[in-house]
Design a protein around this nucleic acid. Sequence first.
RNA 1: GCGAAUGUAGCUCAGUUGGUUAGAGCGCCGGUUUGUGGUACCGGAGGUCGCGGGUUCGGAUCCCGUCAUUCGCCCCA
Length: 469
Amino acid sequence: MAKIETPRPIRGTQDIIGPDAEAFAHVVETFERVRKLYRFRRIEMPVFERTEVFARSIGETTDIVSKEMYSFEDRGGESLTLRPEFTAGIARAYLTDGWQQYAPLKVATHGPLFRYERPQKGRYRQFHQIDAEIIGAAEPQADVELLALGDQVLKELGIADVTIHLNTLGDAASRDAWRAALLDHFRAVKGDLSEESQERLEKNPLRILDSKDARDKVYVADAPKIDDFLSDEAGRFFADVTSGLDAAGVKWVRAPGLVRGLDYYRHTAFEFIPDEGSASANALGSQSTVLGGGRYDGLMDSLGGAPTPAVGWAAGIERLAMLVGEGHADLQPHVAVIPVGEDALTVAQSVLAEIRSYGIEAETSFRGNLKKRMQRANASGAAFAVILGSDELASGLATVRNLSNGEEYKTPIRTLDVDLHTLVAVHKFNRGSQPDPLADALEGTQVKMTKDGLVISLLGNAPLHSDDQ
RNA sequence: GCGAAUGUAGCUCAGUUGGUUAGAGCGCCGGUUUGUGGUACCGGAGGUCGCGGGUUCGGAUCCCGUCAUUCGCCCCA
């Protein structure tokens, strides 16, 4: 008998459930809320493009294109690539879909990206990012707005021990002059550099500034600084960005060694990096950047479009989720509906529908006797159980059990939705969860339960909703 | 592409210098309690010890290969 072997998941992909999945969703929901606050328009993008979209914009010769893209041929022989980033695809859409008409255009999106890399902590072959771009704006105010968005997203996620590391690469002329000076500087001491940096010297000299090797750091310290090569215009641009950030209350530090590898980057470059020794730094291991981006005024040209200024950033959802921690599941108390016996099943369904339509989270288990279902209700973390058995059907009074303290009482099945709404609000309030208008109204009062029914004595003299805040 | 560590129950792991029937905690199923969960007690199911080969009277344990996972290097749009 041949045993069927279960197919394994693809290397570097992940199946997420539980607290990690809740944290993931929390990151996306927070991003969605904040980007609306900043009036960034939501866009949806394909996950694959013609290979040339990425090859042209990123550069044919880089490791990225030659080794790290998921490329394949479709049935027509066309080379396609799973997107390794958002920016190139968005730039393509800007050119092919006539989005110039919206310029300056603020857009945001999120979703899966793919890179053929060796997986390690916080790095996967399929990973997910949130992304924001401003296209068609050459003004430093766009950089400020974009950075402020990123800063607020992190703050609202409760990630406080992260700082913006900010640098400028200048305009094209500044950047080229600086690069030439760096080459001279490092070539003079080539033999003393680490093996990796000797390689970088030919391929990507700016990257030497990032080196962690002690042998390189000696020479990095007195390497030429971009500031000495900035044109007046580029210097003014950077000054406008930093003063704008200060005015917006966004904290940043200057990071003269921070560079972006690709040629199309100009002016502003930044990474949000956990502070040394912080909880976030420890949580991320060697993968330290949580959000990164910059100005890419040179990108549209490489795709055959008119020169178009643009600035953007992206942040890994998995990495952010690692930093927000647990505790994002089950913030809302929920109710378990427990039918006992065949007759109660349909009543349970209509009760579920009613209390859900009232905005209360509710579920029922599909099988088991009362004991079994009570166990499941407890395991699911339900705040209340509603028991519907023959007694309850006969009397029209449901049994409501508070699962945190075991108190039990009867209440008319007809008005379960209203009664539960009150109970849930009180429960939330007692637990110190987010304030609810009803819970506010109930502050300092008590809800009385009697054998005959749920009596909310204060409902007669307190408003259900408070509009004065 | 390079380096290191780890693969034993659904999960997290123990398993001594190679020795008889491979264990624990949690989870799961059942019982003490036929309409009452969370605590407690009792019982039960569940394992080709990643896979293949070798050494040996005997391998979860030692050797070789292979696959996978993890962490790091390179790279990082």
